[in-house]
Each structure stands twice: as C-alpha cells, then as structure tokens.
C-alpha cells in the first residue's frame, strides 16, 4: 500500500454544495485593516507606554494636572484620538475573529458579538467625547 491511500477527501471545487461566491469583500478589508492599523499602533502604543511608564517618574507623576498639560497640545490630542480609534477597532476586530473561531453555538456567537460591539461603541464614543470636551478648569 502506498502512502497515497490516506483517507483524504475534499469536495470538488465546483460542486453545488459549496456556498455561493461571496458578495462582500468585508473580510478582505478587515484583514488589510488589521495590518495597516497594527503598523501605526506599534508606534503609537509603544510610544505611549514608554512615555507613561518609563520616562521621568513613570506612572507616579500621572494625575489630573499631568493630563491637562498633555492635552493642551493638539499633537498629543491627535495622538490619543488616533490611538483610541485604531486600538478600539483593531482590538474589537481581533476579538470578533476570536469569537467567530471559538463560539460553538450560533446564539452564543451572536450574543458575544453583540456584547463586543456594545463595548467597542462605548469605548470609542466615551473616549472621543472626553477628548473633545476636556476642560482643564473643571474643578473650579
């Protein structure tokens, strides 16, 4: 007996049971988005961690005044806004893939994804709202 007897069986490429050709390129764009956003996030997030945890006195120096000082600069506002949106979408899309892979029942998959989408909207909306309406004199 030769090795070719291994019981492999694959559907014929054009057999009618196969689902119809896809009509949406959503997964292609999501795949591409993960790579493009990932490349930007490498710099944004590692820079953020370096500044916040290692430079000067790290996390010990962070307080309201420190945040107010940073967000006085449009550069850091733009940095944080970009990072928020890209991280929220990149992380959310990653979790969507994980849920699609491991949820066994359609209902579980549906509700986990609803929970994910709600969390994504909350994170991105709350973060954006805070960045745009931040008031350094809120305590006065």
């Amino acid at each position: 007996m030769s090795v070719t007897d291994a019981p492999f069986s694959v559907d014929k490429p054009r057999s009618p049971q196969r689902p119809a050709a896809r009509r949406s390129n959503f997964e292609l764009y999501s795949w591409l988005f993960m790579r493009l956003s990932g490349l930007l996030l490498v710099f944004l997030v590692l820079g953020h961690l370096l500044i916040m945890l290692f430079l000067d006195d790290g996390v010990q120096r962070i307080n309201f005044a420190f945040v107010a000082g940073r967000w006085a600069s449009p550069f850091w506002q733009f940095w944080d806004l970009t990072m928020l949106w890209l991280a929220g979408l990149h992380g959310g899309n990653g979790l969507r893939t994980v849920i699609n892979d491991y949820a066994r029942k359609d209902q579980t998959r549906f509700w986990l994804k609803m929970l994910l989408y709600v969390s994504m909207i909350v994170i991105i909306a709350v973060g954006t709202f805070v960045l745009f309406t931040f008031d350094p004199n809120i305590g006065n």
Binding site: A68, G88, S119, I123, F129, V130, F134, D135, G139
Partner: peptide
C-alpha cells in the same frame, strides 16, 4: 490587551468627572 484598553479608557474618562 483589549480588556485592559476597556478599563483604561473608562479610568481616563474620569478626567471629565472631576480632578479628584
């Protein structure tokens, strides 16, 4: 990291509540 992002956005959002 995604779970931490969720917590971290919410704790930072407190700057909109009060400095304290």
């Amino acid at each position: 990291v995604f779970f931490f992002l969720f917590v971290h956005v919410l704790d930072t959002a407190l700057v909109r509540v009060s400095p304290n």
